[in-house]
Nucleic acid binder design. Structure first.
Lengths: 212, 212
DNA sequence: GAAAACTATACGACCGGTCGTGCTTATTTA
DNA sequence: TAAATAAGCACGACCGGTCGTATAGTTTTC
C-alpha cells in the first residue's frame, strides 16, 4: 500500500492504489470517484495522486484497465482452465457468479455499474468501456462458436444470441444480488444457463446433474 | 392537479420538472442530477425547485416515482392490453424493448442505471429503488404464474426463474443498446424470449411465427 | 392586502487541478 | 570515503468553480 506514508515509486504500490480505485468506483461510480477520498483511503495526499496520473480522466482509464485485469484473473482464466466446449462456457459463468458472490467489489460489478453510468456520456472513458465490452462479447461469442464447431452444440445455434443470453444472466445477477435476495439471484443465474445448455447440448454428460 | 388555479400552475411546473428530472437522471445519474442544471433546463431558478422539494433527496424520490409512472404508462399498460398468458408476457417484453428503442430516455433505462448506481449506497433512495424493483419482479412473477395456471405454460415451470430470465433480457438490452449495436441488442432480446416461450408453450399459435 | 409562488443572493463544503516547498535519494565530486 | 549536488517525489496551501441549502425580498394571484 503505502511506504512511509508515501505513495511510493514502483508499479506495485501504484497498482495497489488502482485496486482501491476499482473498489471505490464500483461503489460510487467512476465519475463519483473523488481523488480526495481515494487519497484519504490510501493515506496519501491528493497531489500525490496527481503526480502519478496527471488528470482524473487518466486515473479513470487506468482504473478501467485494472478492473479488466481483475476480470481476467478471476473470471476469464478460471473459465479457460475448464476443457473447451460447454464445460468451459459453464465454468466461465460459474466463475463470474462466484466473483459476484465473493463480494470483492461492494457495488456488485464494476463493468455493469460503469457501463450504465457512461451509457450517455461520450468521451474517452466511455470509449474505453465500450471497447472493453466489445472485447468481452467477442470473447464470449468465440467460446460459443468453438463449442458449436466442436459438436457440443447444434450446428444451427445462433452464436451471438446465445452469447447475449449468457451475458444477460450475469448482468442481472450482479444487479439483483444487491437489491434483492443475493442467493436467489445467483441460483437463478446458474439454473437458467444450465437449463439452456442442457436443452441445447446433445451430450448430457458434459454438464452437472443439477443444482440444489 | 387541484381545482385551485394557483396550485394548478404549481403542479404543472412540478410535473414538467419531474419529467425533465427523469431524463436528466437517466443521463447523469440520480446522484449526479444537479438542481442548478435542472433549473437551467426548465428556465426557472434553483431556489424555485428547492421551494417545491425541500431537499435534493425529496426530489430524487419524486423523480423515481415519476419514472415509475412512465414505466407504468409505456410498458405495463400496453402489456396488460394483451390477453393474459404468454401473449401478455410477450407484449410486455415487446413494449419494454420498444420503449428503449424509442430513446425516450438518453441513457437507456432509468431503473437499470439508477439501480446499479445505488447498489452500494444505503439510504432512502436506495430503499425506494429496491421497493420499486421488488414490485416489478413480483408483477412479472404474477404474470408468469397466471400463465402457468392458465395452462399456457407447463405446470412444473419455475416461475421466479422464468421471471428472472425475462427481466435479465431487458436489462441486457438496455445496456447493450447504448454501448454496442442497438438493433442487434433489441433483436437478441426479442428472439431470446421468443425462443424460450416457444420451447415452453404447448400451443404454438399463441406466439408470432418468427422475427425478421 | 394577504398569501402563495418565485427570485436573488449568499454561504459553507467539496470538487478537480496547480504551485511552491521541503524531504529523500542517487549521483557526482574531491 | 565524505561532502556536495542534482533530481524526483510527496506534501500543504490554495485556486476557481459547482454543489446543496438557507434566507430575505419580489412578483403574482385571488
Amino acid at each position: 500500500m503505502t511506504v512511509d506514508g508515501r505513495l511510493a515509486r514502483g508499479d506495485r504500490t501504484r497498482s495497489a492504489a488502482l485496486d482501491a480505485a476499482v473498489v471505490l468506483a464500483t461503489e460510487v461510480g467512476l465519475d463519483g470517484l473523488s481523488l480526495a477520498r481515494l487519497a484519504g483511503i490510501l493515506g496519501v495526499s491528493k497531489s500525490g495522486l496527481f503526480a502519478h496520473w496527471r488528470s482524473k480522466e487518466a486515473l479513470q482509464l487506468a482504473t478501467v484497465d485494472r478492473a479488466v485485469e481483475q476480470w481476467q484473473e478471476r473470471i476469464v482464466e478460471p473459465g479457460l482452465r475448464a476443457p473447451a466446449g460447454v464445460r468451459r462456457l459453464w465454468a466461465l459463468h460459474q466463475a463470474r457468479i462466484d466473483f459476484y458472490a465473493a463480494r470483492v467489489l461492494p457495488g456488485g460489478c464494476f463493468f455493469a455499474s460503469t457501463d450504465f453510468e457512461y451509457n450517455a456520456r461520450p468521451g474517452p472513458v466511455r470509449d474505453r468501456l465500450a471497447e472493453v465490452f466489445g472485447r468481452w462479447t467477442a470473447f464470449l461469442e468465440r467460446l460459443v462458436r468453438e463449442t458449436v464447431d466442436a459438436g457440443e452444440l447444434p450446428a444451427g445455434t445462433d452464436v451471438p444470441l446465445l452469447a447475449y443470453e449468457i451475458d444477460a444472466l450475469g448482468i442481472a445477477a450482479a444487479m439483483r444480488s444487491r437489491l434483492m435476495d443475493p442467493d436467489a439471484a445467483y441460483r437463478h443465474a446458474r439454473q437458467s444457463l444450465l437449463d439452456r445448455l442442457r436443452a441445447l447440448c446433445p451430450d448430457p454428460t458434459l454438464l452437472p446433474e443439477g443444482l440444489s
